[in-house]
Design a protein around this nucleic acid. Structure first.
Lengths: 354, 354
DNA sequence: ACCCTTGCCGAAACCGGTTTCGAAACTCAG
DNA sequence: CTGAGTTTCGAAACCGGTTTCGGCAAGGGT
């Protein structure tokens, strides 16, 4: 834990170790030191080693904005948070950001955060960020089906990674959780409990995950040998109120479903409310499965059966991918997915309908 | 919404407007342009105007990292988020960060975010951030009583602002919500409802707000003409589980309180659980007041009476203060507080004890 | 008419790096 | 021993700004 002696000498003499200091210490020129540290082939192996050792010993670290002036790269990753999609990302944000910044610093990058309140403001924000070279690449949370950010960055030829997938993968890197697999598994779980009238409340239609999760639900029904009843499907629910409303319309049907799969935990909690309004006991009269793994789910009554997403790990992964993308690795090699973890809790139980 | 024509010309020719371009356009040297834009007194008013107009017209914006190399200032604000204090800050983070970044960009600054998982790692993170000049100043959330961040930055003579106050104000700027006033108001509210046995569950002892809120509670009791019963006071509760535990010990007393004031909403929700465990109906058998204004409070059963904090506005305020601090305004002038807004909901009701 | 300010601006150094260019030294074949 | 080809490095330009310094012209006092 011991760090260099005089990093922060008091007073105005807080001068850093510069590349010239390293050069002087070795009786070399700074150009040689620079090339040695950057691994140029015209520096002998031996001096390269000498330089790297000395740099280490002197605790030398190039000033990122000093190199940026010539190279154009700041060694920083950009993240623009949108205030529009309210509750959707709020609970995850802390974890996600923690992951992002941890991943960034692990790669020697910093994280620059900006915000935008409207969509127009959003791409304007990207524009100025680009113009001022504030970031070498961007992390785009919540991939959308027609994503203006993707269009902009693709056109500008700036590296970016998506949290979520994209129909047109051209130039896209991404990391995503296979929500479709989770939906499928949810249906299988319910089917094994004896449910056959299974409702589905899908998430925000503008997001690319909605289509996938819808497909996952259908795949699950097919695998369980159940017919999909379109009357039991609702789309575009994001908030708790959305969920309450959608669930209301399902529960008030003549033959209501005995189980409901939700693409989003918040929505599942809305289903709880709709059920409470009708004195339906969740876990007994109605089974509910969510997706996301938010805290409130664990504390709900009964605790929500759901799929936990490791948002933190996703952040780390995305930062790592983005740095690789910036370093020039082909984007086809930079697409990864992972699975959510099924968390069985009290909101699902055997079907007692007939 | 029209922006400059060729900000992002495709291909490698995406050259920006530099200071030399502006100089050439005016038949001046770049030194003159620089001094004109920075308001040096040795440039005539007329040319200063000419330069500023032309810079505007050409959409010129100095490259922050190019100036940083000489000035040492990056025009960016640093924010280190601590992963240790879990739930405490999670719900607010999105709003807070939105405020910070909005405030930063409004001042022409960017926001650089780093993270640290332990306290040792925390100050190490600050050290490298300082060494690499990643930020001109720092926003410190959750002021603590003995705050290592304050000591470090004070010693290094680096500008910073606190969200929260500090006992030793030397060199400190801050913005804070007057939680003590809220606590006092909470007691008055309960007293007016007829409560006299009022419990108090305070927040994390390491944070500087705890002492203040404790004083506020006592001030409220004094104002209401009630004696403070030390048996009804609990300290250092931050999470929901903490709250449940503290409430349990209060409710299991021979003469339990008829109302409980909580320094933190999460803790208040823990009180809900403890009450539910004992089939005590909140709002009727027991009144509860929280503080923070988290969403879950509004959705709880019954909705939680609390004090809403405008976290977003706090972020904006802090960023603004920090920029002023960086610009050299004396820190004594940079200390502001605001009040939380009382939100009366269903968790408080008349005392029906006797 | 002369000198001394003062106002205003250009020239040039500088910040901490990167990158191009050319030359010295060292190889190796003939 | 010589000449061509390689390594390996230093010198210097450059990136986009800031800041110091000095000079020229206008103004003011005597």
């Amino acid at each position: 834990m011991g760090h260099a002696p005089t990093i922060l000498s008091d007073g105005p003499s807080r001068s850093r170790v510069t590349i010239s200091d390293v050069a002087d210490a070795l009786n070399l020129t700074k150009s040689t030191v620079s090339r040695a540290l950057n691994g140029y082939p015209d520096i002998s192996k031996s001096t390269q080693l000498r330089v790297k050792r000395m740099a280490e010993r002197m605790n030398y670290q190039p000033l990122s904005h000093a190199q940026a002036i010539k190279t154009g790269r700041t060694r920083s990753l950009g993240f623009v948070l949108q205030l529009a999609d309210h509750d959707a990302q709020r609970p995850f944000l802390a974890e996600f950001l923690a992951g992002l910044s941890a991943g960034s610093t692990a790669q020697g990058y910093t994280l620059t955060v900006a915000s935008a309140d409207s969509e127009a403001h959003l791409i304007e924000t990207f524009r100025t960020l680009l113009r001022d070279r504030k970031a070498d690449g961007f992390i785009l949370p919540r991939a959308m089906v027609n994503d203006p950010r993707v269009e902009l960055l693709r056109a500008a030829n700036v590296p970016f990674v998506l949290f979520g997938r994209q129909a047109d993968p051209k130039g896209c890197c991404w990391f995503d959780i296979r929500g479709e697999d989770a939906m499928q598994e949810a249906v299988m779980h319910l089917s094994e409990l004896g449910h056959s009238r299974i409702g589905f409340i899908n998430g925000g239609t503008i997001y690319s995950y909605a289509k996938l999760r819808g497909e996952g639900f259908r795949a699950g029904m097919a695998q369980a040998g159940l017919a999909v009843d379109l009357d039991l499907i609702r789309e575009n629910a994001v908030t708790m109120d959305d969920g309450r409303e959608a669930a209301a319309s399902l529960l008030d049907m003549a033959y209501p479903p005995t189980a409901i799969v939700c693409a989003v935990d918040q929505v599942a909690l809305g289903v709880y409310r709709a059920a409470a309004d009708r004195e339906i006991t969740i876990g007994r009269d109605l089974s509910v499965v969510g997706y996301d793994g938010i805290q409130e789910g664990a504390h709900a009554q009964p605790p929500l059966t759901t799929f936990a997403v490791d948002t933190r790990a996703a952040g780390v992964e995305l930062a790592t991918l983005l740095v690789k993308c910036i370093r020039g690795e082909p984007s086809e090699d930079l697409r990864k997915t992972a699975n959510a973890a099924f968390v069985r809790r009290g909101s699902t139980g055997p079907c007692i309908d007939h």
